[in-house]
Amino acid sequence: MADALTEKGSARSWRAPRLTLRQREAIEAWLFVSPTVAGFLLFFLGPLAAVVYFSLTEWNLLTQQATFVGVKNYVDALSHNPDFWHVLRNSFVFAMGLVPLNMALALSLALALSRPFRGVIFFRTVFFAPVVTSAVAWAIVWRFLLQGEGGAVNQMLALVGIDGPNWLREPDWAMVAVIVTRVIKMVGLNMILYIAALQAIPRDYEAAARLEGASNWQIFRMVIWPLLAPTTLVIFVITMIGSFKVFDHIYLMTGGGPENGTLVLAFYIYEQGFKFFNVGYASALAMIMFVIVLVLTVVQMTLRRRDMQ
């Protein structure tokens, strides 16, 4: 009886080293993950360790030598350099402005667009379009639109009798402008996450609440909002982290100005590291950013775990 299954098998077993199935699987698995692991060590874990070390050194530009200075860079940032607290404050103002605005708008749009009606695809497409657009292009166009004189936004405001400010040249307005334009750019992403979550809620819940005489607002407040809580938590954290990372938007719209009014942490790191070559100081700043992001992540994980119990 000619047998395709075993002939080959016995032939192979002569050559194959004696490995248990389990050992073989483990070796194959490590081959599968090896590119990822190699890249991870080289471009992530190594640099992460390096940034810790760099943050404890001072860099001499002329000799290209690093001198160990302990926590001096951190002390500089936290107690000597007035810029740092200013930058941190800016980052928090940016986040505190962006996150609630983004989430409220995203949720409102999602509620309006989670059920099919004529035009729903059109609106979803429109609100999501800025997400696929490059941040650079978006910033360039808005910088153009927000010019003080002759800018299209102010021209339109003039039509209704409002004398618009020179948006990007006044520190407070600049902050408002970068926040609002960033929200418009990114809100589509959170909107679709909310839409997905809303569509996953069984319609029966709403029907049951309606039969019990609940109003729209009551249904939202007592049924939908609690069911959205896990999504809201995820969205909150990714939006928060995203707002601390914002760089290209600021770089192109205001360059951190005016009067450092929009100088945020990511931009400050770039400036210190690549413009002034304060490698040690910039690394310390990067570590501080790392810690902020880490804290946010841990908070999310703890809340999510508690949520699951």
Binding site: F40, P47, L48, V51, I269, A286
Partner: peptide, 16 residues
């Protein structure tokens, strides 16, 4: 790694 922004590692990556 998913959590850490590129901005954190960009300086050592520059030297690398």
């Amino acid at each position: 790694a998913l959590m850490v922004p590129e901005e954190v590692t960009i300086i050592p990556n520059f030297f690398l």
